[in-house]
Every structure is written in C-alpha cells, then in structure tokens.
Design a protein around this nucleic acid. Structure first.
Lengths: 345, 345
DNA sequence: ATGAAAGCGCTAACAG
DNA sequence: CTGTTAGCGCTTTCAT
C-alpha cells in the first residue's frame, strides 16, 4: 500500500531530448516520419525518465481507449460451476493482450445491474464489448444494442429483435449433440435417452435439436428436462429409469448432469457402459476424468471461443476506424466439437 | 457491431439548463452547494440529453480512475482447474461495483508478461491493484512494489523483500489443516498421512505446517508431496500405500488431490472411511460432492476473500486521499475455515 | 521532417 | 451560491 509518485510527462521527455512535444508524441506512437537520430534521442529520454503515456490524456483526444468490456450476465448460473468462464476469459485475455487492449470485466448479479452496465457501455469508456448472455429472456442484448457499442456475443443469443449485424461465436452444439447420439447408435444402442440442459439457454436447446436430428422418431418419454447441474441429472435419470426401464444409453446435455446420471445408474445397479452407455458434453476435465467410469463426452474448445470473440471484435473495430465497406463486417462463427472417448460409452 | 454516436458534453448540458459548466459539474458530482431549483434544471437536462461524463477527461484532472487492476499470475496452474478464481472475482466485483469502481483484469502467461503488467501498473491507469501471486519465486510482487501502486495480495505472498506495508488476505490454511487432522484424530485414527500441495505455494506450505502442528512426531514417511492435481493425488496415494500399508487416514492438501487419492484407495480395495478416512481442503463443490464417497473437507469462503481484498484496497485508497495518519493503514486479514463433514471421514 | 498552437471534456481554484 | 478561468497531458492540423 505505498503511495504513487508523480510521473514524467511528454513535456519532460521533450525537454530532455531537446525536441518538441509533437516529435516525442510521434516517436512514442511508432516514430514514422521522424529522422533516425532524433528517434534515438527521444527513445533514450523516454527510457531514462521511465516515461509512460497518460492514457486518459490520450483517450481524450483520440477517442479510443484500447479497452474492451467483457460482460458476464448472472454468474450464479453456470459460470461459476465450472472452468468454462475462466478458460473463455483466458482466450479473450490472450488475444486482447496481443493487441494492447485492456480487459474491463463487468459481472452482473441480476436485473439491478443491467442499468449500470448499460450506462457504462453507453458511456463510451470502452471501444467494444464481449457479452455472455446466458438466458433467453435476457434484456441485456437489447440494452447493449441501444448503447451502440460494437459487440460480439459468446454463445448464440436468442434474439427476438433485429438480427442484422449481430455477431456471435458459439460451439456447434447441435452438431456435437448429433455426434454424441450417433456414437451411441454406432455402439448398437437403440433406446437412447436425453437429459436436456436448462432450456432457457440456447446451448441446451441446440443440443436437444441435435439429439432429435438423429432420433427422428424417438419415444418422447426418452427426453427429460435437466438443468445442467448434477442434482438435475440425478433427478432426470431417476425419472428416465422409471419411465423407460429398457433404455440402453443416455446423452446428457453436459458433463455435470452426466455425473449425476452416472451416480443414479450405479445405485440402480445398471452397469456403465455395459447396460447403459453414457455420453456427456463439454469435456470439463475435473468432472469428466473423475467420474466412475470416466466420461465419454463432446469437447468444445472454450479458450479458442474466447480468443475468436476478441479477434472478431478487434477486427470489427479496425474496420470501423478505417471506415471501409470492404473487408465486410465480421460475421458469426460456429466452432466444431470433437468426441472424446473414455470409458462410459 | 454498430457504430458509436457522438455524445453530449458538459457544455451541452450547461447550455440546455442555462447554467455554467461548473454548475453542471457540481450537480453531476453530488450537487452539494447548488440550490435546489438549479439542481433540478440540470438533472433534467442531463436526463434529456442522456449525458454521461467522459471518464478520460475527468481522470485527466482528478488523477483518479475509479478502476482497479486484478492481476492473476500464471493461470495455467491452479486457477483454471477450479471455480476458485471465478468466485474470488465475483467477490471482488461485487465490492468494487458497490463503490463505483471498474475491474481491469490482467492475466499473465509466464514471465514475458510481467514486464507488460509492470508497465501497465506503473502507467498509473488504475488506482490500485489486487494481486494473486501463486508461486514462491514470483517476481511480480517486487515489480508491483516498485511500480508504487497501492496493492492488496490474495494469499500470503512469500516475500524475501521488505514486508512493511504488505497487505494480504488469506484463508487460515494452517488452522484449517489442524482442524482436518484433529478431526481425523478424533475419529480414533493414528496413522494419519498427508498429501501436500505444490510446495512452491504458501498455501501448501501452511497446510503442511498445520498438519505438523498436530502430528508433532509423525512418521516422516506419512508425508508425500503432491501438486494439487488429481493425478498428483493418485501418485502420492500409491506411494503412501507402498510405504505405509498400515495408514488409517489421509489429509489431502486440496479436494482435487483427495479425489485422486480416493480412486487409488478404491482400486486398492481399501474402504473409505472404514479402513481409511479422508479429508480434503477447499470444499470445491463440483468435486467434493461428486466423489465416491462424498468428501469431508475444509471450507474456505472464497468469495468473501475477494470481497475483503477489494474492501481493504478501497479503504486504503480513501485513506491515501484523505492523507490521514489516523485510521491506520489496512492490515492483512486471515479468514477462518470450517470443517464440512460428508461421508469420507 | 519538425515545431507551434489549438483543443479534447472536465474539475478546481478563484472571483463575484 | 454561481460563473470565469486556467489547465490536466496528449494528439493533430498547419506552418515552416
């Protein structure tokens, strides 16, 4: 907790190097159009004084902040139950760092915070935003749209409003789900059940759609709603066992609910994978590797999703700056998933 | 990805309200010393124009940013394996939000990033920093000390340098470890083993010390080094079983390694808790509740740690601002832990 | 290629 | 109590 010392200004550097402020500014910003000897002198002065530009002063004139906001809505939900969030952030951080941008984190706890976030975004404190809106009825996307901040969404947002220009990055939830179910089918299973995720999130809906793509005329009783939690998985599994004692496979919407299902199956005396094969989704290591038996699941590259979101946003900002119509506005990306085979299926 | 519109300035609000910029500024910043009718007029103008202060301009003169940096060193390690990080952040975020401060997240990937972080911190972009330095030999604390930014550390930093004024928030790792071991002893166990964490982190060292506090003259073979991972836990457990087949309890430095140990015990045909009782540390829900049997462990209030760090820092900043000697500089805090009893011990 | 000068939007003395 | 004024540190025309 030490106090902070006064820092040297451009003026000071200029004086020391015997040039004008303008010249120092040029050098600091890349040094184009300044003759080598001067560049050298200025660099030296900067070094000696330990000069660091004052970002506030710079932003005031450039109207750029080299900062982007990461908005995470309602963390209580999924975000804090798994490393998802952290990995995503890591990817984002890496990309932003590579482009000298700062990451301003905005966590919201329920509706009360939306106004705050809206105000902040509208306040022009950041150049853009990366938004994770988990729930279908989330008003945040609208809010942000109105704030007029360039934005990339994490996960396909469910949006009743104008979709033009909405950019998002998502995993191929539907395709991944199809792969999971096909894998099960390939194992010779025919009574394949599905434990859904919380259906107010697009990822859960998409995974359910993927399941249906393969199980076109599945017994509707084979589908039970879960909520992405282990407890939900247990509940759903019990329900399934009661409804369809003859099931021979389960595709759970995520690893956490698969873990719950596994526990119930064991209690019920069903052997996995012999009697019932189980596939999860996410490949959340601490869970998938720890279950008994270890979990076959669908992996998504979370970190890459984060990186991509940042890349897309930054690219969009450059384009904005250049005011070019060419190079087209960035468009949404859906990342592939892969099946990771372990012991459960 | 929409473009951002030009925003109204203080000037514009002043014009609309028919007052001077200074008056508007006063109103915007609390409105002390401005007569009610004027306050009202200005508020209305602000509302109508949708005015939001330009933070850059404000910072330029006040030299405050109302932003603090959260520095997380080397995320690959522990941070991304569990919800620790996310919870900590949530606590920090809540506290900062309550005081209208922004959270700037700085993630570092190895040494190369240290210079960048040092530069940023020294650059006076934030009013203070919250730093998580996990490893004993981390040069980051030194760097930050030099940058002269008010800082609070998460977890006791191992610091060879000047300790004066170093403020940190930590869990009572040592006390928690003692509780864990005493609990085991209370169960009548006498051959209590310890799987340590990565001993380049103070938390691991402190937990080991706690174990030793109780097992004053323990068989040294009962202590095996782990690394906080499930794989490390497995390895350590195998080693322990080979060395001391007669052990009747294990205290693992965290839940993840306890999970690994549990698996090895099961493979070895040892019943838990009948043959061997097991206690973990952290109470990391997705793990502790999922193990077979569920894990008895030491809980730390992670979110509260985060909140407290932020509170301490902000308090220190206020004090700095007030330049008061009274109210003493904030000092470190060690939070209590609690034993959570489940099935494993 | 370099320098001089004019602000960016805001706060903080200082007058009145 | 309210308005006037002088910058905060930087970038950016515009001259030279």
């Amino acid at each position: 907790m030490t106090a902070t010392a006064p820092r040297p200004t451009l003026e000071a550097v200029a004086a020391r190097a015997g040039v004008s402020r303008a010249t120092v500014s040029r050098v600091v910003n890349g040094g184009d159009g300044v003759r080598e000897p001067l560049v050298e002198r200025v660099r030296k002065a900067v070094e000696e004084l330990g000069y660091v530009p004052n970002q506030a002063a710079r932003s005031l004139v450039t109207r750029r902040h080299d900062a982007i906001a990461v908005v995470v809505a309602e963390p209580e939900t999924r975000v804090f139950a798994d490393p998802f969030f952290a990995l995503q952030l890591r990817g984002i951080s890496k990309e932003l760092t590579a482009h000298d941008n700062q990451l301003v984190l905005l966590l919201t706890e329920g509706r009360d915070d939306h106004a705050r976030v809206g105000r902040y975004l509208a306040g022009g404190h950041v150049d853009g935003a990366l938004v994770f809106s988990l729930h279908l009825d989330d008003p945040l996307p609208e809010l942000i749209q109105r704030a007029g901040v360039p934005t990339v969404f994490g996960g396909r947002p469910d949006w009743s409003g104008d979709r033009r220009g909405v950019v998002y990055v998502d995993s191929d939830n539907r395709g991944g789900a199809r792969d999971a179910v096909r894998h099960l089918a390939g194992l010779g299973r025919t009574r394949i059940a599905h434990i859904t995720g919380a259906l107010d999130q697009t990822s859960a809906v998409d995974r359910l759609d993927g399941y249906r793509d393969v199980m076109v005329d599945a017994d509707p009783r084979l589908i039970v709603e879960g909520d992405f939690t282990p407890a939900g998985g247990e509940r759903a599994m019990r329900e399934l066992l009661a409804r369809c004692p003859d099931l021979d496979a389960v595709f759970a919407a995520n690893d956490l609910s698969a873990a719950g299902a596994l526990r119930v199956l064991r209690e019920a005396g069903r052997r996995v994978p012999d009697d019932v094969a189980v596939v999860g989704f996410d490949d959340m290591l601490p869970v998938a590797e720890q279950t008994e038996p270890s979990l076959t699941t669908i992996r998504q590259d979370i970190e890459e999703m984060g990186r991509l979101m940042a890349r897309l946003l930054l690219r969009g900002l450059e384009r904005d700056a250049a005011e070019l119509g060419i190079g087209a506005a960035p468009s949404s990306v859906v990342l592939p998933t892969t099946l990771v085979r372990r012991a459960s299926a």
